[in-house]
Design a protein around this nucleic acid. Structure first.
Length: 276
DNA sequence: GCCACTGTTAGCAT
DNA sequence: CATGCTAACAGTGG
């Protein structure tokens, strides 16, 4: 569930709390979460000070002293919480980081166990395997660069928006909301887009993501911010999760279909396959 | 109880 | 190379 706006919300919440703290200990309760890093390697960040907390796509990057980095991916159900004892004792807590002089800790909780953490020693964290292949940040992209992304791209618009090598950070909720905002059908072949439609898609992407960040992300089921609070953007969803309910724009019933195995909700009147 | 569904993506087949 | 399916897992709702 955590997509770009949710991860941005978590990172914004953690940054003022974590920056400058010195890591005391890391306890791992689910070894597979550490993937190919051995648990002992994770322990190298003990004693290091946190220098920055950043986001890249849906990944959380914690920069520590001496070119060491912690990288988290929350996948579907992960939470990264700044928390006290109650959360630490939750049965789905997979990893806990403690800090010098603090009783609160950083807790990684993940019901479905898809999430992971990595520890890197590198002068350029963007070159690691998890970050290297990500497409550009949608909110840093000017219109001409956005249009350039469509070179050699085929397939359906919905699948393209979900492709992290095309744009980083968009998932199923925001793909549907962006397509509604741009008034484009999810099955539209990417190659068929006119320049005008690409401009609309670019503008819609920026608007939807910025509004979602301002609302603190969408809490459908699992998402919580770094303090355990819920986002508010689910109240503003126009099509996601609203199949069979009236379109907020025209009143027609919102429909859903599967695109590449993913549910896609859209308005059959507002989002025609061919338009303009 | 059983089955279908869920916000992600790595890995494999085409 | 690009694109399309599925499995990995646990929980929820019909």
């Amino acid at each position: 569930m955590p997509e770009l706006p949710e991860v941005e919300t978590i990172v914004a919440g953690l940054r003022p709390k974590l920056t400058g703290l010195v890591i005391q200990d890391i306890r791992v309760f689910l070894p597979s979460l550490v993937r190919k890093d051995k648990t002992f390697r994770l322990q190298r960040i003990r004693g290091k000070r946190i220098e920055a907390v950043r986001r890249r796509g849906k990944m959380i990057v914690i920069e520590c002293q001496d070119r060491l980095y912690l990288i988290f991916h929350l996948k579907m159900t992960g939470r990264l919480l700044w928390a006290s004892h109650r959360t630490r004792s939750d049965k789905h807590t997979r990893l806990v980081v403690s800090f010098r002089g603090r009783t609160d800790e950083l807790c990684f909780r993940d019901v479905r166990k898809f999430g992971f953490v990595r520890c890197l020693e590198t002068s350029d964290p963007l070159e690691c395997q998890e970050l290297r292949d990500l497409g550009p940040e949608p909110l840093d992209l000017d219109l001409e660069s956005f249009i350039g992304l469509f070179r050699r791209r085929r397939g359906r618009l919905k699948s393209l928006l979900l492709d992290q090598t095309f744009l980083a950070g968009i998932g199923n909720i925001y793909a549907d909301e962006i397509l509604f905002e741009a008034r484009l059908h999810p099955l539209t072949p990417a190659v068929s887009l006119t320049r005008k439609q690409k401009e609309k898609l670019w503008a819609a992407t920026g608007r939807v993501l910025r509004r979602a960040i301002a609302a603190g992300g969408s809490s459908i089921r699992d998402f919580r911010d770094a303090d355990g609070g819920e986002g508010l953007f689910q109240r503003e969803h126009r099509v996601y999760g609203r199949a069979s309910l009236p379109c907020p724009r025209c009143g027609r019933k919102v429909r859903s279909l599967k695109v590449g195995g993913r549910t896609s909700s859209f308005c059959p009147r507002c989002q025609l396959k061919r338009e303009n």
